[in-house]
């Protein structure tokens, strides 16, 4: 009998099963928590930048290398908190659905997310190193959005529109340079909370 044919049949079956399944254990709560941390981070950054205001009227904005270091620290802490809480809730959801926490599917999702994300992160750090400050916030939004769009093929479809919104906000922020913090609060904060709520009610009930 044609063993080769059957072997290739099985391989095709496995391949298609793998290719089509999407990581559905993304938890809406991750979005809500990440968004909240982002808003807290934005608030802390706002205070740091606009600190020491004595006059009512014109505001003094001084971005020194000290400020930058503090802002980077705030950003780093925000990201770490968002990622940890995101992982926590998503792992919890995976267990609830009896799905493998770490398999081909998850690996594929992470790679597709991390390549644009890390590229953007490195690019921003390099630009910061050369003294370009204003363009950083817009670029982070754009790269994050692109990363989400890329990863959306391997997980819930809603991620794609969230990614598009981030890109759009990033482009707007690039036009209105100086309002980076505001766009950050909207993109990383408000929209993540919004999407988190929507996805929680759609998938996690």
């Amino acid at each position: 009998m044609n063993n080769e044919k059957y072997l290739s049949d099985l391989q095709d079956i496995k391949k298609i099963m793998n290719r089509t399944s999407r990581f559905i254990s993304l938890s809406g709560l991750s979005g809500i928590f990440a968004g909240t941390f982002a808003l807290l981070g934005a608030y802390a950054a706002y205070n740091r930048v606009y600190a020491h205001q004595t006059e009512i009227g014109y505001r003094i904005v001084e971005i020194s290398s000290n400020t930058i270091f503090d802002l980077l620290t705030i950003a780093f802490i925000t990201i770490v908190c968002a990622v940890i809480s995101g992982l926590f809730f998503t792992i919890k959801e995976s267990k609830k659905r009896n799905q493998e926490v770490w398999d081909e599917q998850v690996k594929r999702l992470l790679v597709s997310l991390l390549i644009p994300l890390i590229t953007g992160g490195l690019l921003c750090l390099l630009l910061l190193f050369h003294g370009h400050v204003g363009i950083i916030a817009p670029l982070t939004l754009v790269f994050y959005g692109l990363a989400l769009i890329n990863a959306s093929h391997y997980t819930l479809g809603e991620i794609k529109s969230l990614g598009l919104i981030q890109v759009f906000l990033g482009l707007l922020a690039a036009y209105y340079i100086g309002f980076g913090l505001l766009f950050w609060a909207i993109g990383f904060g408000i929209f993540h909370i919004l999407y988190g709520i929507i996805m929680h009610y759609r998938y996690n009930q």
């Binding site: 049949d9 095709d12 079956i13 496995k14 298609i16 099963m17 089509t20 399944s21 999407r22």
Partner: peptide
């Protein structure tokens, strides 16, 4: 048909 079934059985 094999492909159709494979895709449908995991989604």
């Amino acid at each position: 048909r094999l492909g159709i079934m494979s895709a449908l059985i995991v989604n």
